[in-house]
Design a protein around this nucleic acid. Sequence first.
DNA 1: CGATGTCAAGGAATC
DNA 2: GATTCCTTGACATCG
Length: 320
Amino acid sequence: MASPTEASTGPDRLGFAVKVLGRPGLKSNDSRRWQNSPHLKTSVVYLDAIFEYLAETGIRMYRISSEIAPYVTHPDMPQFHGQIEESADELAELGERIRQLDIRVSMHPSQYIVLNSPQERVARSAVADFTHHARFLDSLGAGPEAKIVTHVGGVYGDRPAAMRRFVERYRVLPETVKARLVLENDEISYPVDDIAAIHDECGIPLVFDILHHRVNNPAALDDAAACRRCLATWPEGQTPKVHYSTQRTEARTQPKGDGPRRPAKSGEHDDWIDGGDFVAFLRRLPAARFDVMLEAKQKDLAVLRLREAIEAAGMDRRIW
DNA sequence: CGATGTCAAGGAATC
DNA sequence: GATTCCTTGACATCG
């Protein structure tokens, strides 16, 4: 790499999360239960096949399942805790392949990982979980753009105090975690202006999620302004990342018969990305560079379909 | 084989 | 303090 940074000079990236739909039989992690001794090494074999598929389709961004190392932080199952070390060779090899393919990877720990919880036990286990995620990405030899995405957490009846707890706990995280942790606006509790305030306190980079913003935007910031606010929080030389999805407008399962149609729940992801909306969004941010993680139910198929809309629109801004 | 129950974990609303 | 929903898929067991 020519510069100390790793920002790509190619087009910005379009990616998807975890599950592959475009080819039958590809699994994203070893999800067997503990009785059957699942292992990270098995997940790595699965990932290898997924990256082969990504190479064939030219998809250059992918969110790895946070269940990749089964039970690795489970408090009652110490026999699972050494999986990352046990898989060091396999992970190094996989990481080499990921770098050759120039794929940006990320992870997104589950809803149970809550750094700002008033319960010390919960906060400690969040730190342990982040640490394990960082250790996994480090074992791949992934660069600094391989991020771990989280939310602020709960409100607990006192928003300022809950935000302060996030900041205080972020400040004392291990450096390996701080190098990778990024904060996303959520659909219920913490909109962009709140996470921006948290960034101002502790410097954590922000991931703009457009769907969450559209359903949780009390400050009435427009999409492009809110996005710009988040993009500006990233360190020089790292390409920011944005989450993009289209809101489902009609419930997936409808009552049988001629009865009234049931509306979708607010904030539910649609199967696909609205290409016209996406192109319009990008056109409002002509000078900005950022990678886009799509969160559509049709996963990789939605990436492939969105490419068609981008091409048809004849965009100047390059994203693929 | 198809149907059904289960899964480590938190938060919030409800009673 | 206990219960249920949130949301998701796929494993695992049952009939």
